[in-house]
Write a protein that binds this DNA or RNA. Sequence first.
DNA 1: ATCACAACTTTGATTGGTCAAAGTATAGCG
DNA 2: CGCTATACTTTGACCAATCAAAGTTGTGAT
Lengths: 219, 219
Amino acid sequence: MPSATVENYLKCILMLSMECDHGEVPMGLIANSLGVTSGTATSMMKSLQKEKWLKYKSRKGVTLTSSGKKLGMRMIRRHRLLETFLVETLGLDWSEIHDEAEVLEHAISEKVLERLDVFLGNPRHDPHGHPIPTKAGIIRKSPQKTLLDCDIGKKMKVVSIFDQSTEFLNFAKKKGLMPGNMIKAISRDNLADTIELQIEKTPKFSLGLTSAEKILVSG
Amino acid sequence: MPSATVENYLKCILMLSMECDHGEVPMGLIANSLGVTSGTATSMMKSLQKEKWLKYKSRKGVTLTSSGKKLGMRMIRRHRLLETFLVETLGLDWSEIHDEAEVLEHAISEKVLERLDVFLGNPRHDPHGHPIPTKAGIIRKSPQKTLLDCDIGKKMKVVSIFDQSTEFLNFAKKKGLMPGNMIKAISRDNLADTIELQIEKTPKFSLGLTSAEKILVSG
DNA sequence: ATCACAACTTTGATTGGTCAAAGTATAGCG
DNA sequence: CGCTATACTTTGACCAATCAAAGTTGTGAT
Ligand SMILES: [Mn+2]
Ligand SMILES: [Mn+2]
Ligand SMILES: [Mn+2]
Ligand SMILES: [Mn+2]
């Protein structure tokens, strides 16, 4: 019933509302992350409000209704289960699956999705380490920090990678920054804005702080 | 690049041109089998001609160009490989896969499709017995007749089922009319318009001629 | 040869999604 | 407190895909 466009908007708004919690999600963020002009976003928000997916406050932003959240969450589940299928079953690389899933998520029925979930053995995380919401729309989020504010000198486990771009994912894989891998922050240099890392017995390397921010770790 | 709508039109036109060979495919058939009004079909044909997918002759019909045929064939391949995946891997019933594939065929990339083909072991036929075109767009069609004009008294193998409707497929399965099964036509009654069949050792049953036409057999 | 009617085309309208450009509100600086 | 820069909204336009209804054509029955 909701179009692919509506599905994309709601998934995007839900993700924005989760990652940077300002009660309302402002127009600018939405337009920006969907790559549309702000006028388009505004007019879309009005029609999404008319269809009861969200509440729109002019010049403030939007908040999802419970059906909006539910649909957004369903889209995240679809996206991440599909990504898992593409890597686990078909053997694609984790750097090429995001865009594929972005399209497939709108084409797969609830029935096929649940079969896929069973076929994959009810995975809890996608290939980038992101939690897969349950059918009921619940995310089991593990405690995590970014490499920016992790403890120096302690062993930690890589939980997930925030950036979905092919280039960054290829880079991360080459460096061994993949979910599950153990890692140690050797030192942080606040003047150079870098953090020095070591993975297992491989050589040390350092990361700028904007890159470090994209790596989530635990423990 | 071509929209899902364009893909549907071209697949449909290719299938019509293959099954009932009148050089040109008339508007009426197209509009009818896509469930749009004839005006819509006419205007769509003009724009498809503009984009070089086909040749349109007013009040005659359309013929696909070679790129039109190629795209149409690619869509048939996608559709049938997806149907095979849905049955073989996810365990759906052959009566529920057509509509799912009708949507997924527009969302799956060439790369994922070829991985799927390998994963499935390069199947030659979909669950309804229809041949899957090769990547190069070639259909290996086995010699076949409908149950309407088969030989009476001879053992034959069911090749494929033409009708994609849930109800007919459920019926066919119940009767044992599935690709690969052996079958014998006991008699034909031209007054009653029926044909009497027997499958292995199960009881005889008869089929009206419109139903018989939907079953393709060989040998 | 005529003509009715089925098959087709044209016309004018609608809907969803989009943009560019012009207009407006407001947070926060001075 | 007033003003400006930034974020947002409005307006008017466009495109793809569709329909309903009115108009046209060509075939085949008489
Ligand atoms: Mn998407
Ligand atoms: Mn992911
Ligand atoms: Mn389709
Ligand atoms: Mn089929």
